[in-house]
Amino acid sequence: MGGCCETAGLGSVVLMSINEKPKLEATLITGRTIEQGVEKEYGKSSREYAESVAVCYIDAEDMKKLGVKEKTNVQVSTRFGSVVVKVLKSPRTPHPGIIFIPYGPWANSIIDPETHGVGMPSFKGVPATVEPAADKPVLSLTELLNAQFGKV
C-alpha cells in the first residue's frame, strides 16, 4: 500500500507495507494543558514537568490502527525534526488524524519555525508522522538539551 498522503482533515491514514511498522499520517497541534500549566509553576527541571509535556495525545481509533497502547513510546516526525514521546489516549474523542503535544521542548523540536513574515512560528497544524518506537527511549530534559544544543 502506498501513494496515499492525505495529511489534514478528519480522516486519518495509516500507511503500511510488508515488514514495516505501521505509520500514522496526522496533523500535529501543540497547546496548553492544565497539567503542563500546573507543573511549569513547580519548575521545569522537575520530572513531573517532563511527564506532563513529553507526551502525545492520540485518538483511540488511531492508536488501534497504529497498534500502540497507552504509555508506550512513539516517534513523532515532521519536516523539522523527530522526537520520542509517550502515547496517551486522547480523553475527548473522536478526532482521528489529529495528535496533540503540550507546549514544551519536546514539541518545539519538531514544529515549523517559519514565521511567514509575521514573527510567529507555526505551533499548530503541522503535518506529522507517528510510528511505534518501543525500542527508543523518551529523552530527559537534560538529554534532550544536550542532544540539541550540547550546552547544559
Binding site: K44, G104, S109, F149
Partner: peptide, 27 residues
C-alpha cells in the same frame, strides 16, 4: 525561550552570550 521556541531559533540563542533573569532554574 529555549524551551518555547522552535529548535532552530533556540539554537542561535545558545550561541549568543546569554543572560537569564528568572526565579527558576528554567531551561
Amino acid at each position: 525561550p529555549i524551551s518555547n521556541f522552535p529548535r532552530k531559533a533556540a539554537e542561535h540563542l545558545t550561541e549568543n552570550p546569554l543572560i537569564a533573569i528568572d526565579p527558576h532554574m528554567n531551561v
